[in-house]
Design a binder for these strands. Structure first.
Length: 551
RNA sequence: UGAGGGAUCGUCUAGCGGCAGGACGACGGGUUCUGGCCCCGUUAACCUAGGUUCGAAUCCUAGUCCCUCAGCCA
Protein backbone atom coordinates (compact mmCIF):
# COMPACT_ATOMS: atom_id res chain seq x y z
CA UNK A 1 0.00 0.00 0.00
CA UNK A 2 1.41 3.36 1.07
CA UNK A 3 4.32 1.36 2.33
CA UNK A 4 5.63 0.49 -1.08
CA UNK A 5 7.52 3.73 -1.40
CA UNK A 6 8.67 3.63 2.18
CA UNK A 7 10.16 0.26 1.60
CA UNK A 8 12.57 1.93 -0.75
CA UNK A 9 15.40 1.82 1.71
CA UNK A 10 13.80 2.91 4.97
CA UNK A 11 14.12 0.80 8.12
CA UNK A 12 16.44 -1.46 6.15
CA UNK A 13 13.40 -2.96 4.51
CA UNK A 14 11.85 -4.01 7.79
CA UNK A 15 8.08 -3.75 8.37
CA UNK A 16 6.86 -3.96 11.93
CA UNK A 17 3.38 -2.94 13.04
CA UNK A 18 1.35 -3.31 16.19
CA UNK A 19 -2.26 -3.50 17.27
CA UNK A 20 -2.55 -1.33 20.41
CA UNK A 21 -5.94 -1.68 22.12
CA UNK A 22 -6.74 -0.17 25.48
CA UNK A 23 -8.26 -2.91 27.66
CA UNK A 24 -11.24 -0.83 28.67
CA UNK A 25 -13.94 -2.58 26.68
CA UNK A 26 -14.60 -5.32 24.19
CA UNK A 27 -13.29 -5.24 20.65
CA UNK A 28 -15.75 -4.53 17.85
CA UNK A 29 -15.83 -4.87 14.09
CA UNK A 30 -14.05 -1.51 13.79
CA UNK A 31 -11.13 -2.96 15.70
CA UNK A 32 -11.25 -5.95 13.37
CA UNK A 33 -10.48 -3.53 10.55
CA UNK A 34 -7.43 -2.29 12.42
CA UNK A 35 -6.36 -5.80 13.34
CA UNK A 36 -6.65 -7.02 9.76
CA UNK A 37 -4.79 -3.94 8.55
CA UNK A 38 -1.91 -4.19 11.01
CA UNK A 39 -1.46 -7.94 10.88
CA UNK A 40 -2.22 -7.95 7.17
CA UNK A 41 0.44 -5.40 6.26
CA UNK A 42 2.98 -7.18 8.40
CA UNK A 43 2.18 -10.44 6.64
CA UNK A 44 2.28 -8.81 3.19
CA UNK A 45 5.78 -7.50 3.75
CA UNK A 46 7.11 -10.44 5.63
CA UNK A 47 7.14 -8.45 8.81
CA UNK A 48 5.68 -8.78 12.26
CA UNK A 49 2.82 -7.34 14.22
CA UNK A 50 2.82 -6.98 17.99
CA UNK A 51 -0.12 -7.06 20.31
CA UNK A 52 0.29 -4.24 22.77
CA UNK A 53 -2.10 -3.22 25.49
CA UNK A 54 -2.15 0.53 25.88
CA UNK A 55 -2.97 0.42 29.55
CA UNK A 56 -2.13 3.77 31.07
CA UNK A 57 -5.47 4.63 32.66
CA UNK A 58 -5.97 2.20 35.57
CA UNK A 59 -9.37 3.63 36.40
CA UNK A 60 -10.91 2.06 33.29
CA UNK A 61 -8.88 -1.01 32.53
CA UNK A 62 -9.48 -4.59 33.58
CA UNK A 63 -8.07 -8.08 32.99
CA UNK A 64 -11.45 -9.24 31.75
CA UNK A 65 -10.93 -6.96 28.77
CA UNK A 66 -7.37 -8.15 28.22
CA UNK A 67 -8.58 -11.73 28.10
CA UNK A 68 -11.43 -11.00 25.74
CA UNK A 69 -9.15 -9.04 23.42
CA UNK A 70 -6.62 -11.84 23.23
CA UNK A 71 -9.35 -14.37 22.58
CA UNK A 72 -10.90 -12.17 19.87
CA UNK A 73 -7.66 -11.53 18.01
CA UNK A 74 -6.80 -15.20 18.09
CA UNK A 75 -10.28 -16.16 16.97
CA UNK A 76 -9.96 -13.78 14.03
CA UNK A 77 -6.99 -15.89 13.03
CA UNK A 78 -4.00 -13.74 13.94
CA UNK A 79 -0.91 -14.72 15.85
CA UNK A 80 1.36 -12.36 17.75
CA UNK A 81 3.62 -15.22 18.87
CA UNK A 82 5.46 -14.13 22.01
CA UNK A 83 5.16 -10.45 21.22
CA UNK A 84 2.50 -9.66 23.77
CA UNK A 85 3.42 -6.32 25.26
CA UNK A 86 1.97 -3.91 27.76
CA UNK A 87 2.63 -0.21 27.98
CA UNK A 88 2.54 -0.76 31.73
CA UNK A 89 5.68 -2.88 31.36
CA UNK A 90 7.41 0.25 30.09
CA UNK A 91 6.49 2.46 33.04
CA UNK A 92 10.03 2.45 34.42
CA UNK A 93 11.58 3.30 31.05
CA UNK A 94 8.93 5.90 30.42
CA UNK A 95 9.74 7.48 33.76
CA UNK A 96 13.40 7.64 32.80
CA UNK A 97 12.47 9.32 29.52
CA UNK A 98 10.43 11.86 31.44
CA UNK A 99 13.43 12.61 33.66
CA UNK A 100 15.51 13.02 30.53
CA UNK A 101 13.05 15.56 29.23
CA UNK A 102 13.09 17.47 32.52
CA UNK A 103 16.87 17.53 32.54
CA UNK A 104 16.85 18.91 29.03
CA UNK A 105 14.58 21.69 30.25
CA UNK A 106 11.78 20.40 28.05
CA UNK A 107 9.32 19.37 30.71
CA UNK A 108 8.17 20.90 33.97
CA UNK A 109 5.97 20.16 36.91
CA UNK A 110 2.88 22.32 36.87
CA UNK A 111 0.86 22.97 40.01
CA UNK A 112 -2.15 24.55 38.42
CA UNK A 113 -5.47 22.80 38.91
CA UNK A 114 -7.12 21.02 36.02
CA UNK A 115 -9.55 23.87 35.72
CA UNK A 116 -6.80 26.46 35.65
CA UNK A 117 -4.85 24.54 33.06
CA UNK A 118 -7.93 24.58 30.90
CA UNK A 119 -8.26 28.33 31.33
CA UNK A 120 -4.59 28.92 30.54
CA UNK A 121 -4.80 26.78 27.42
CA UNK A 122 -6.71 29.39 25.46
CA UNK A 123 -9.20 28.49 22.74
CA UNK A 124 -9.11 27.34 19.16
CA UNK A 125 -8.62 30.91 18.01
CA UNK A 126 -6.80 32.52 20.93
CA UNK A 127 -3.34 31.51 22.12
CA UNK A 128 -2.83 30.17 25.62
CA UNK A 129 -0.77 31.72 28.43
CA UNK A 130 2.25 30.30 30.14
CA UNK A 131 1.70 28.69 33.50
CA UNK A 132 3.31 30.59 36.39
CA UNK A 133 5.15 27.35 37.20
CA UNK A 134 6.58 27.01 33.72
CA UNK A 135 10.00 28.35 34.64
CA UNK A 136 10.79 26.18 37.63
CA UNK A 137 14.40 25.10 37.71
CA UNK A 138 15.46 21.69 36.48
CA UNK A 139 16.37 20.74 40.02
CA UNK A 140 13.04 21.76 41.42
CA UNK A 141 11.20 19.91 38.64
CA UNK A 142 13.26 16.81 39.27
CA UNK A 143 12.58 16.99 42.96
CA UNK A 144 8.85 17.53 42.51
CA UNK A 145 8.53 14.79 39.90
CA UNK A 146 10.32 12.35 42.17
CA UNK A 147 8.01 13.21 45.01
CA UNK A 148 4.99 12.84 42.71
CA UNK A 149 6.14 9.31 42.09
CA UNK A 150 6.74 8.77 45.80
CA UNK A 151 3.12 9.54 46.50
CA UNK A 152 3.67 12.71 48.46
CA UNK A 153 0.90 14.56 46.66
CA UNK A 154 -2.79 14.09 46.16
CA UNK A 155 -4.46 13.46 42.81
CA UNK A 156 -4.45 16.59 40.72
CA UNK A 157 -2.01 18.53 42.84
CA UNK A 158 0.68 18.49 40.18
CA UNK A 159 1.17 17.22 36.65
CA UNK A 160 4.22 16.91 34.44
CA UNK A 161 3.91 18.88 31.24
CA UNK A 162 6.01 19.19 28.14
CA UNK A 163 7.40 22.66 27.57
CA UNK A 164 6.55 23.32 23.97
CA UNK A 165 4.57 26.41 22.99
CA UNK A 166 1.49 27.82 24.67
CA UNK A 167 0.79 29.90 21.59
CA UNK A 168 0.90 27.02 19.14
CA UNK A 169 -1.98 27.04 16.68
CA UNK A 170 -2.15 23.31 17.32
CA UNK A 171 -3.74 22.95 20.74
CA UNK A 172 -2.13 19.58 21.27
CA UNK A 173 1.22 21.32 21.40
CA UNK A 174 0.26 23.83 24.13
CA UNK A 175 2.35 22.21 26.86
CA UNK A 176 0.54 18.87 26.88
CA UNK A 177 0.26 16.89 30.08
CA UNK A 178 2.69 13.99 30.20
CA UNK A 179 2.03 12.53 33.63
CA UNK A 180 -0.80 12.82 36.12
CA UNK A 181 -1.17 11.61 39.69
CA UNK A 182 -3.78 8.88 40.05
CA UNK A 183 -3.82 7.00 43.30
CA UNK A 184 -5.57 4.07 41.74
CA UNK A 185 -4.33 0.49 41.64
CA UNK A 186 -3.46 -0.74 38.19
CA UNK A 187 -4.68 -4.17 37.15
CA UNK A 188 -1.11 -5.19 36.37
CA UNK A 189 1.27 -2.99 38.32
CA UNK A 190 -0.93 -2.88 41.40
CA UNK A 191 0.02 -0.11 43.80
CA UNK A 192 3.55 0.23 42.46
CA UNK A 193 2.71 3.49 40.72
CA UNK A 194 0.59 6.46 41.59
CA UNK A 195 1.62 8.52 38.58
CA UNK A 196 0.66 7.36 35.11
CA UNK A 197 1.88 8.55 31.71
CA UNK A 198 -0.57 10.00 29.19
CA UNK A 199 -1.31 8.52 25.79
CA UNK A 200 0.72 11.00 23.76
CA UNK A 201 3.83 10.34 25.80
CA UNK A 202 3.34 6.60 26.09
CA UNK A 203 2.28 5.62 22.63
CA UNK A 204 5.13 6.99 20.56
CA UNK A 205 7.72 5.76 23.04
CA UNK A 206 6.15 2.31 23.21
CA UNK A 207 6.28 2.18 19.42
CA UNK A 208 9.89 3.27 19.54
CA UNK A 209 10.85 0.74 22.21
CA UNK A 210 9.31 -2.03 20.13
CA UNK A 211 11.06 -0.71 17.02
CA UNK A 212 7.79 -0.33 15.17
CA UNK A 213 8.21 0.98 11.62
CA UNK A 214 4.65 1.95 10.75
CA UNK A 215 2.32 3.12 13.48
CA UNK A 216 -1.17 2.90 12.04
CA UNK A 217 -3.93 4.73 13.86
CA UNK A 218 -7.26 6.35 13.19
CA UNK A 219 -7.94 9.81 11.81
CA UNK A 220 -8.71 11.51 15.09
CA UNK A 221 -5.04 11.18 16.03
CA UNK A 222 -3.90 13.09 13.01
CA UNK A 223 -3.60 16.26 15.05
CA UNK A 224 -1.56 14.36 17.65
CA UNK A 225 1.07 13.39 15.12
CA UNK A 226 2.94 16.64 15.76
CA UNK A 227 3.28 15.67 19.39
CA UNK A 228 4.15 12.07 18.53
CA UNK A 229 7.06 13.41 16.53
CA UNK A 230 8.00 16.09 19.06
CA UNK A 231 8.45 13.58 21.88
CA UNK A 232 10.62 11.30 19.76
CA UNK A 233 12.60 14.21 18.35
CA UNK A 234 13.37 15.62 21.77
CA UNK A 235 14.46 12.40 23.40
CA UNK A 236 17.39 10.17 22.70
CA UNK A 237 15.67 7.30 20.97
CA UNK A 238 17.02 4.80 18.49
CA UNK A 239 13.89 4.42 16.48
CA UNK A 240 11.39 6.96 15.22
CA UNK A 241 8.36 5.15 13.81
CA UNK A 242 6.08 6.81 11.30
CA UNK A 243 2.51 7.45 12.32
CA UNK A 244 0.02 6.93 9.50
CA UNK A 245 -3.68 7.57 9.89
CA UNK A 246 -6.67 5.88 8.29
CA UNK A 247 -10.44 6.32 8.61
CA UNK A 248 -12.14 4.32 11.30
CA UNK A 249 -15.01 2.08 10.30
CA UNK A 250 -18.59 3.20 10.61
CA UNK A 251 -21.26 0.59 10.01
CA UNK A 252 -24.86 1.39 9.23
CA UNK A 253 -27.62 0.45 11.68
CA UNK A 254 -25.29 0.06 14.63
CA UNK A 255 -22.89 2.04 16.80
CA UNK A 256 -19.18 1.51 17.02
CA UNK A 257 -17.98 3.68 19.84
CA UNK A 258 -16.90 2.08 23.08
CA UNK A 259 -18.74 4.69 25.05
CA UNK A 260 -22.02 3.85 23.36
CA UNK A 261 -21.51 0.12 23.41
CA UNK A 262 -20.76 0.19 27.11
CA UNK A 263 -23.94 2.16 27.61
CA UNK A 264 -26.00 -0.45 25.75
CA UNK A 265 -24.57 -3.11 28.03
CA UNK A 266 -24.92 -1.19 31.25
CA UNK A 267 -28.42 0.08 30.62
CA UNK A 268 -29.56 -3.39 29.68
CA UNK A 269 -30.53 -2.63 26.09
CA UNK A 270 -28.64 -5.79 25.20
CA UNK A 271 -27.76 -8.78 27.32
CA UNK A 272 -24.01 -8.23 27.46
CA UNK A 273 -20.92 -7.62 25.38
CA UNK A 274 -21.47 -10.88 23.54
CA UNK A 275 -25.15 -10.33 22.82
CA UNK A 276 -25.55 -11.53 19.22
CA UNK A 277 -26.93 -8.13 18.27
CA UNK A 278 -23.75 -6.37 19.31
CA UNK A 279 -21.15 -5.41 16.68
CA UNK A 280 -18.49 -6.71 19.03
CA UNK A 281 -16.26 -9.54 17.89
CA UNK A 282 -17.72 -11.64 20.72
CA UNK A 283 -21.24 -10.76 19.63
CA UNK A 284 -20.58 -11.57 15.98
CA UNK A 285 -18.94 -14.82 17.00
CA UNK A 286 -21.93 -15.85 19.06
CA UNK A 287 -24.25 -14.74 16.29
CA UNK A 288 -22.56 -17.24 13.99
CA UNK A 289 -20.20 -15.09 11.96
CA UNK A 290 -17.01 -16.82 10.84
CA UNK A 291 -13.55 -15.26 11.18
CA UNK A 292 -13.10 -15.71 7.45
CA UNK A 293 -16.20 -13.68 6.65
CA UNK A 294 -15.05 -10.85 8.90
CA UNK A 295 -11.58 -10.82 7.42
CA UNK A 296 -13.08 -10.84 3.97
CA UNK A 297 -15.33 -7.96 4.92
CA UNK A 298 -12.34 -5.96 6.14
CA UNK A 299 -10.63 -6.64 2.86
CA UNK A 300 -13.60 -5.48 0.81
CA UNK A 301 -14.22 -2.22 2.64
CA UNK A 302 -10.72 -1.05 1.88
CA UNK A 303 -8.68 1.57 3.67
CA UNK A 304 -8.80 5.29 3.02
CA UNK A 305 -8.55 8.64 4.71
CA UNK A 306 -12.09 9.83 4.13
CA UNK A 307 -14.83 9.27 6.69
CA UNK A 308 -17.27 6.69 5.49
CA UNK A 309 -20.32 4.70 6.45
CA UNK A 310 -20.29 1.12 5.25
CA UNK A 311 -23.65 -0.49 4.58
CA UNK A 312 -24.21 -3.42 6.93
CA UNK A 313 -25.59 -5.26 3.88
CA UNK A 314 -21.99 -5.80 2.84
CA UNK A 315 -21.20 -7.59 6.10
CA UNK A 316 -24.29 -9.72 5.58
CA UNK A 317 -23.24 -10.46 2.05
CA UNK A 318 -19.86 -11.65 3.32
CA UNK A 319 -21.27 -14.09 5.84
CA UNK A 320 -23.80 -15.47 3.36
CA UNK A 321 -21.08 -15.97 0.80
CA UNK A 322 -18.97 -17.92 3.27
CA UNK A 323 -21.75 -19.96 4.84
CA UNK A 324 -23.33 -20.81 1.49
CA UNK A 325 -20.23 -22.81 0.72
CA UNK A 326 -19.75 -24.49 4.08
CA UNK A 327 -22.97 -24.68 6.07
CA UNK A 328 -24.78 -28.03 5.94
CA UNK A 329 -28.45 -27.71 4.97
CA UNK A 330 -31.16 -28.89 7.28
CA UNK A 331 -34.90 -28.38 7.53
CA UNK A 332 -36.47 -26.56 10.41
CA UNK A 333 -39.88 -25.00 10.83
CA UNK A 334 -40.00 -21.75 12.77
CA UNK A 335 -43.77 -21.26 13.03
CA UNK A 336 -45.27 -24.73 12.69
CA UNK A 337 -48.52 -25.39 10.88
CA UNK A 338 -49.80 -28.94 11.20
CA UNK A 339 -50.39 -30.86 7.97
CA UNK A 340 -52.12 -34.23 7.75
CA UNK A 341 -51.61 -36.28 4.61
CA UNK A 342 -55.00 -37.96 4.42
CA UNK A 343 -54.05 -40.67 1.96
CA UNK A 344 -50.74 -41.58 3.63
CA UNK A 345 -50.81 -44.82 5.69
CA UNK A 346 -51.12 -43.90 9.39
CA UNK A 347 -48.26 -46.03 10.66
CA UNK A 348 -45.90 -45.68 7.77
CA UNK A 349 -42.56 -43.90 8.06
CA UNK A 350 -40.17 -43.44 5.16
CA UNK A 351 -36.57 -42.38 5.25
CA UNK A 352 -35.98 -39.95 2.40
CA UNK A 353 -32.62 -38.96 1.10
CA UNK A 354 -31.61 -35.31 1.39
CA UNK A 355 -28.51 -33.54 0.09
CA UNK A 356 -26.33 -32.08 2.84
CA UNK A 357 -24.85 -29.30 0.78
CA UNK A 358 -25.45 -28.77 -2.92
CA UNK A 359 -22.37 -26.51 -3.02
CA UNK A 360 -20.20 -29.31 -1.71
CA UNK A 361 -21.15 -32.79 -2.96
CA UNK A 362 -18.44 -34.36 -0.82
CA UNK A 363 -20.62 -33.81 2.25
CA UNK A 364 -23.00 -36.47 0.93
CA UNK A 365 -26.57 -37.07 1.92
CA UNK A 366 -28.62 -37.93 4.98
CA UNK A 367 -31.97 -39.55 5.70
CA UNK A 368 -34.98 -37.52 6.77
CA UNK A 369 -38.08 -39.25 8.13
CA UNK A 370 -41.44 -38.65 6.49
CA UNK A 371 -44.81 -39.57 7.98
CA UNK A 372 -48.53 -38.83 7.80
CA UNK A 373 -48.30 -35.83 10.09
CA UNK A 374 -46.00 -32.99 9.26
CA UNK A 375 -45.29 -29.39 10.05
CA UNK A 376 -44.76 -26.73 7.44
CA UNK A 377 -44.09 -23.03 7.83
CA UNK A 378 -47.16 -20.90 8.55
CA UNK A 379 -45.88 -18.38 6.02
CA UNK A 380 -45.96 -21.05 3.34
CA UNK A 381 -49.74 -21.24 3.29
CA UNK A 382 -52.26 -18.61 2.40
CA UNK A 383 -55.95 -19.20 2.18
CA UNK A 384 -56.40 -16.33 -0.18
CA UNK A 385 -53.11 -15.98 -2.05
CA UNK A 386 -52.15 -12.79 -3.86
CA UNK A 387 -50.81 -12.89 -7.41
CA UNK A 388 -47.16 -13.67 -6.87
CA UNK A 389 -47.61 -16.09 -3.99
CA UNK A 390 -46.44 -19.46 -5.32
CA UNK A 391 -46.72 -21.51 -2.17
CA UNK A 392 -49.48 -23.65 -0.75
CA UNK A 393 -53.11 -22.60 -0.96
CA UNK A 394 -56.43 -24.43 -1.05
CA UNK A 395 -56.51 -26.76 -4.03
CA UNK A 396 -52.95 -25.98 -4.97
CA UNK A 397 -50.13 -28.48 -5.38
CA UNK A 398 -46.57 -27.91 -4.15
CA UNK A 399 -43.51 -30.03 -3.54
CA UNK A 400 -42.21 -30.98 -0.13
CA UNK A 401 -38.47 -30.88 -0.48
CA UNK A 402 -36.95 -34.34 -1.12
CA UNK A 403 -40.40 -35.85 -0.47
CA UNK A 404 -43.67 -35.72 -2.39
CA UNK A 405 -46.00 -33.40 -4.19
CA UNK A 406 -48.92 -32.60 -1.94
CA UNK A 407 -52.21 -30.89 -2.64
CA UNK A 408 -54.20 -28.99 -0.07
CA UNK A 409 -57.74 -30.36 0.21
CA UNK A 410 -59.04 -28.90 3.43
CA UNK A 411 -58.34 -26.06 5.80
CA UNK A 412 -59.06 -26.44 9.51
CA UNK A 413 -59.72 -23.27 11.42
CA UNK A 414 -60.19 -22.31 14.99
CA UNK A 415 -63.94 -21.64 15.25
CA UNK A 416 -63.33 -18.73 17.59
CA UNK A 417 -60.43 -16.83 16.05
CA UNK A 418 -60.75 -18.04 12.49
CA UNK A 419 -57.05 -18.80 12.55
CA UNK A 420 -55.84 -21.66 10.39
CA UNK A 421 -54.78 -24.47 12.74
CA UNK A 422 -54.19 -27.37 10.39
CA UNK A 423 -54.27 -28.45 6.78
CA UNK A 424 -55.40 -31.65 5.19
CA UNK A 425 -53.56 -32.65 2.06
CA UNK A 426 -53.21 -35.60 -0.25
CA UNK A 427 -49.92 -36.77 -1.64
CA UNK A 428 -49.03 -38.32 -4.94
CA UNK A 429 -47.06 -41.55 -4.28
CA UNK A 430 -45.57 -41.33 -7.76
CA UNK A 431 -43.68 -38.17 -6.89
CA UNK A 432 -41.51 -39.80 -4.21
CA UNK A 433 -38.18 -38.01 -3.93
CA UNK A 434 -39.71 -34.88 -5.30
CA UNK A 435 -40.04 -35.31 -9.05
CA UNK A 436 -43.12 -36.15 -11.06
CA UNK A 437 -42.75 -38.92 -13.67
CA UNK A 438 -45.36 -37.23 -15.83
CA UNK A 439 -43.29 -34.06 -15.97
CA UNK A 440 -45.83 -32.12 -13.99
CA UNK A 441 -44.44 -28.89 -12.52
CA UNK A 442 -45.14 -27.13 -9.27
CA UNK A 443 -44.30 -23.53 -8.55
CA UNK A 444 -42.92 -23.99 -5.08
CA UNK A 445 -40.89 -26.30 -2.91
CA UNK A 446 -41.54 -26.19 0.81
CA UNK A 447 -39.43 -27.26 3.74
CA UNK A 448 -41.09 -29.44 6.35
CA UNK A 449 -40.48 -31.76 9.30
CA UNK A 450 -42.21 -34.96 10.33
CA UNK A 451 -44.30 -34.14 13.40
CA UNK A 452 -43.63 -37.27 15.44
CA UNK A 453 -39.90 -37.22 14.68
CA UNK A 454 -39.16 -33.52 14.94
CA UNK A 455 -37.11 -31.98 17.71
CA UNK A 456 -38.42 -29.01 19.62
CA UNK A 457 -36.08 -26.05 19.57
CA UNK A 458 -35.88 -22.40 20.45
CA UNK A 459 -34.87 -20.01 17.73
CA UNK A 460 -33.76 -16.42 18.20
CA UNK A 461 -34.25 -14.12 15.26
CA UNK A 462 -32.06 -11.06 15.14
CA UNK A 463 -32.42 -7.91 13.15
CA UNK A 464 -30.53 -4.62 12.97
CA UNK A 465 -29.90 -3.15 16.41
CA UNK A 466 -30.97 0.28 15.21
CA UNK A 467 -33.81 1.45 13.02
CA UNK A 468 -31.80 4.39 11.78
CA UNK A 469 -28.94 4.05 9.36
CA UNK A 470 -26.77 6.34 11.44
CA UNK A 471 -27.89 6.37 15.09
CA UNK A 472 -25.11 8.83 15.92
CA UNK A 473 -26.99 11.50 14.06
CA UNK A 474 -29.58 12.52 16.64
CA UNK A 475 -32.42 15.01 16.59
CA UNK A 476 -32.62 17.74 19.20
CA UNK A 477 -33.23 16.43 22.68
CA UNK A 478 -32.88 12.76 21.80
CA UNK A 479 -30.08 10.32 22.24
CA UNK A 480 -28.98 7.40 20.14
CA UNK A 481 -30.91 4.82 22.16
CA UNK A 482 -34.08 6.43 20.83
CA UNK A 483 -33.38 4.68 17.54
CA UNK A 484 -32.98 1.19 19.00
CA UNK A 485 -34.95 -1.35 16.98
CA UNK A 486 -37.68 -2.77 19.24
CA UNK A 487 -37.74 -5.89 17.06
CA UNK A 488 -34.02 -6.54 17.03
CA UNK A 489 -34.69 -9.80 18.86
CA UNK A 490 -37.62 -12.15 18.40
CA UNK A 491 -37.66 -15.37 20.38
CA UNK A 492 -39.52 -18.33 18.95
CA UNK A 493 -39.94 -21.03 21.57
CA UNK A 494 -41.91 -23.62 19.69
CA UNK A 495 -39.90 -24.42 16.61
CA UNK A 496 -39.41 -27.88 15.12
CA UNK A 497 -36.24 -29.10 13.49
CA UNK A 498 -35.35 -32.33 11.76
CA UNK A 499 -34.07 -35.18 13.98
CA UNK A 500 -30.57 -35.19 12.48
CA UNK A 501 -29.93 -32.12 14.62
CA UNK A 502 -30.10 -34.17 17.81
CA UNK A 503 -26.83 -33.89 19.69
CA UNK A 504 -25.52 -30.96 17.71
CA UNK A 505 -22.78 -28.95 19.38
CA UNK A 506 -22.63 -25.30 20.42
CA UNK A 507 -21.23 -23.07 17.70
CA UNK A 508 -22.27 -25.36 14.81
CA UNK A 509 -23.64 -23.50 11.84
CA UNK A 510 -26.41 -24.63 9.50
CA UNK A 511 -28.50 -23.36 6.71
CA UNK A 512 -32.16 -23.90 7.51
CA UNK A 513 -33.36 -24.29 3.96
CA UNK A 514 -35.28 -21.34 2.61
CA UNK A 515 -34.87 -19.43 5.87
CA UNK A 516 -31.32 -18.47 6.64
CA UNK A 517 -28.14 -19.40 8.42
CA UNK A 518 -28.35 -20.41 12.04
CA UNK A 519 -25.86 -21.30 14.68
CA UNK A 520 -26.23 -23.26 17.90
CA UNK A 521 -26.01 -20.80 20.76
CA UNK A 522 -22.84 -21.22 22.75
CA UNK A 523 -24.37 -20.09 26.02
CA UNK A 524 -28.00 -21.17 26.32
CA UNK A 525 -28.25 -24.24 24.14
CA UNK A 526 -28.56 -27.71 25.68
CA UNK A 527 -28.98 -31.06 23.96
CA UNK A 528 -32.45 -31.46 25.44
CA UNK A 529 -33.49 -28.02 24.28
CA UNK A 530 -31.32 -26.67 21.53
CA UNK A 531 -31.25 -22.92 20.92
CA UNK A 532 -30.41 -21.54 17.50
CA UNK A 533 -29.35 -18.01 16.66
CA UNK A 534 -30.22 -16.70 13.25
CA UNK A 535 -26.98 -15.32 11.87
CA UNK A 536 -28.56 -13.85 8.76
CA UNK A 537 -31.54 -14.57 6.54
CA UNK A 538 -31.21 -15.92 3.06
CA UNK A 539 -31.78 -13.38 0.33
CA UNK A 540 -35.53 -13.32 0.08
CA UNK A 541 -37.22 -12.19 -3.12
CA UNK A 542 -40.66 -12.96 -1.79
CA UNK A 543 -40.10 -10.71 1.21
CA UNK A 544 -39.02 -7.99 -1.19
CA UNK A 545 -42.16 -8.39 -3.27
CA UNK A 546 -44.30 -8.10 -0.15
CA UNK A 547 -42.41 -5.05 1.01
CA UNK A 548 -42.79 -3.41 -2.38
CA UNK A 549 -46.58 -3.47 -2.27
CA UNK A 550 -47.87 -3.16 1.26
CA UNK A 551 -51.58 -3.66 1.77
C1' U B 1 -12.98 32.10 13.46
C1' G B 2 -6.88 29.03 14.54
C1' A B 3 -4.57 24.41 13.21
C1' G B 4 -4.74 19.62 10.96
C1' G B 5 -7.31 16.48 7.40
C1' G B 6 -10.96 15.02 3.59
C1' A B 7 -14.38 15.26 -0.93
C1' U B 8 -15.20 9.75 -7.40
C1' C B 9 -22.07 5.83 -8.85
C1' G B 10 -27.22 5.25 -3.35
C1' U B 11 -22.77 2.82 -0.30
C1' C B 12 -17.50 1.24 -0.17
C1' U B 13 -13.40 1.61 -3.31
C1' A B 14 -9.76 1.83 -7.86
C1' G B 15 -7.33 5.66 -10.75
C1' C B 16 -1.11 8.76 -9.95
C1' G B 17 -1.66 13.53 -17.37
C1' G B 18 -4.38 9.30 -22.07
C1' C B 19 -11.55 5.07 -22.84
C1' A B 20 -13.74 6.74 -15.09
C1' G B 21 -13.13 0.38 -13.46
C1' G B 22 -14.69 -3.19 -9.51
C1' A B 23 -17.73 -4.71 -5.29
C1' C B 24 -22.29 -4.16 -2.42
C1' G B 25 -27.29 -2.31 -3.08
C1' A B 26 -31.45 -1.40 -6.31
C1' C B 27 -33.99 -2.95 -10.78
C1' G B 28 -34.86 -6.59 -14.90
C1' G B 29 -34.00 -11.44 -17.02
C1' G B 30 -32.07 -16.74 -17.34
C1' U B 31 -31.57 -21.21 -14.52
C1' U B 32 -33.41 -24.07 -10.38
C1' C B 33 -36.40 -29.86 -6.09
C1' U B 34 -34.09 -23.71 -1.48
C1' G B 35 -38.43 -17.29 -4.23
C1' G B 36 -31.12 -19.71 -1.96
C1' C B 37 -26.59 -20.38 -4.93
C1' C B 38 -25.03 -19.45 -9.97
C1' C B 39 -25.30 -16.72 -14.78
C1' C B 40 -26.60 -12.38 -17.82
C1' G B 41 -28.14 -7.39 -18.21
C1' U B 42 -29.75 -2.26 -16.57
C1' U B 43 -29.20 1.81 -13.37
C1' A B 44 -25.56 5.19 -11.56
C1' A B 45 -20.22 9.15 -9.89
C1' C B 46 -15.19 12.72 -10.54
C1' C B 47 -17.83 19.18 -4.77
C1' U B 48 -17.90 24.20 -7.66
C1' A B 49 -15.57 27.91 -10.79
C1' G B 50 -11.49 29.30 -13.40
C1' G B 51 -6.53 28.11 -15.39
C1' U B 52 -2.21 24.95 -17.53
C1' U B 53 -2.28 21.09 -21.45
C1' C B 54 -3.35 18.18 -27.87
C1' G B 55 -5.60 15.83 -23.53
C1' A B 56 -7.25 16.89 -16.30
C1' A B 57 -10.66 12.84 -11.45
C1' U B 58 -5.29 13.47 -11.58
C1' C B 59 -1.32 19.54 -12.03
C1' C B 60 -2.22 25.08 -10.51
C1' U B 61 -5.54 29.06 -8.36
C1' A B 62 -9.85 30.55 -5.84
C1' G B 63 -14.14 28.98 -3.42
C1' U B 64 -17.90 25.43 -1.14
C1' C B 65 -19.07 21.59 2.11
C1' C B 66 -17.69 17.76 5.75
C1' C B 67 -14.53 15.71 9.77
C1' U B 68 -10.91 16.19 14.03
C1' C B 69 -8.69 19.13 18.16
C1' A B 70 -9.90 23.53 23.72
C1' G B 71 -9.50 15.46 29.06
C1' C B 72 -5.07 15.29 34.40
C1' C B 73 -9.32 9.61 28.27
C1' A B 74 -7.17 6.80 24.30
Amino acid sequence: MIDEDLKAGKNDGRVHTRFPPEPNGYLHIGHAKSICLNFGIAADYNGMCNLRFDDTDPSKEEVEYVDSIKQNVRWLGFDWADREYYASDYFEQLYAYAVQLIKAGKAYVDSLSAKEIRQYRGTLTEPGRNSPYRDRSVAENLNLFERMRAGEFADGEHVLRAKIDMASPNIVLRDPTLYRIKKVAHYRTGARWCIYPMYDFTHCLSDSIERITHSLCTLEFEINRALYDWVLDNLEVECHPQQIEFARLNLSHTVLSKRKLIQLVEKGHVKGWNDPRMPTISGLQRRGYTPESIRNFCERIGVAKADSMVDIALLEYCIREDLNLRAPRVMGVLRPLRVVIDNYPPDQVEELEAINNPEDPSTGTRKVPFSRELYIEKDDFMEDPPKKFFRLAPGREVRLRYAYFIKCVKVVKDPQSGEVTALHCTYDPATRGGSAPDGRKVKATLHWVSAPHALAAEVRLYDHLFIKENPNEVEEGRDFTHYLNPHSLEILKDCRVEPSLAGTAPGRRYQFERLGYFCVDAVDSFPAKPVFNRTVTLRDTWAKIQKARPK
